[in-house]
Design a protein around this nucleic acid. Sequence first.
DNA 1: GTCCAATGGCTCGCTGACATACCTTTGGAG
DNA 2: CTCCAAAGGTATGTCAGCGAGCCATTGGAC
Lengths: 232, 232
Amino acid sequence: MPLQDALFRPVRAGNAFEETVERLMQAIRLGVVGPGERLPAERDLATRLGVSRVTLREAIRSLQDAGYVESRRGRYGGTFVNSPLPVPAPDRRVDPAELADALTLRWAVETGAAECAAGRALGPVERRNLLSRLAECRDASVDSYRRKDSRLHLAIAEATGSASLTAAVADARTRVNALLDRIPLLPPNLAHSNEQHELIVTHIVAGDPEAARRAMAEHLDGTALLLRGFLS
Amino acid sequence: MPLQDALFRPVRAGNAFEETVERLMQAIRLGVVGPGERLPAERDLATRLGVSRVTLREAIRSLQDAGYVESRRGRYGGTFVNSPLPVPAPDRRVDPAELADALTLRWAVETGAAECAAGRALGPVERRNLLSRLAECRDASVDSYRRKDSRLHLAIAEATGSASLTAAVADARTRVNALLDRIPLLPPNLAHSNEQHELIVTHIVAGDPEAARRAMAEHLDGTALLLRGFLS
DNA sequence: GTCCAATGGCTCGCTGACATACCTTTGGAG
DNA sequence: CTCCAAAGGTATGTCAGCGAGCCATTGGAC
């Protein structure tokens, strides 16, 4: 019974160390903490992640070894994201079931988020956030595009006002990004993406839920098609 | 920055014991393992949940103490869900932010799931599953309604073919159900719910994504309104 | 020049959780 | 009637992860 598989799935995705590494990598790969920026202080971050400082430090240590961050001591020190970031060696093997699962999840949560965001009365902060993320995305280089793209999509999720939904979008994107890293990023796709972004944000700030949803669906279908084409 | 709050959320929702109890309760409260039915054997379940048998047994023990299950030894023994189930004492206090957050998440994932399910070519098994859940829901007593309702919604999520999305729907429903337990279940609402269920399933099996989504959105807005009315 | 607050770096004892092995009960197969 | 497979029940040694405290480094405030 597949329903029981979904409910009786593992309670832990790994040990505390591994999950902590995943979280930090997620923040870096999604561009939530960009190159040159500082992570929260260890004591603070450990509390937020619900993990001991020892465990957090082991995780940070492994990110240092992998070249993602550097730590400096002293007041105004901290752990900083490196620039440029190392490019991860992509594994070639893709499980088609994982691909379908990740794309379906992303499709559901992101179209839902877009429609939901468009249906709310946005505050000036949220509106500005959306527009500046959109602009950053338009101006992004090929190197930084995936991060800026993720930031825009996360800003849309944030505009729903639901932290859980934002987290769900972040997780879905992390999974899809891991797959996207295995296919080339072509300038024409990038331009097309930007047009669609523009459309989505326009509909959201205009408060047209149906249109926002449709635009987001089309956008996601585009990259889904690319992924399936390259990986199947 | 609320985005960082979403990403740097706790890596663990509690200790292994607590999370295991939550999972088992989820399966029981959502009716995935109904009254009189048997849970998977301890060794099997412990493996699936990624938890040691000792920890699982502590969790089961606490469910026994709370009156939710009973264990029998010997071949063809096992842990069985009690009938009738004890009714949990509801805490009165509801955090309005939690309410909004849970409802938004559920809205996004469930409308997405409905549309997605309608857009797929359903196999005969999935179709039959949907229809029989629908029938069970229609015939359900007031006592068992919430469970049958959850089963139907989970069947819709299952029909997307995505285990992750199914899990997301289960989690969202668990949170919302915990809130619904604090308000009365009135027969007129119940009848209305059943009409909407009929509509949703019809659109899904007919393969009309837009209509399925709209019907689901309306259905969810209905219970959301009820909740907000009673709890705010 | 001195001090100090904030940061990363380190150590140690304690506890929760785990893996493993074995025991006990039960009901059907033969 | 006997046996045995499958299930729950129990015991033990090991280790990851935690909390708490202290040390080392740094750069600004005074």
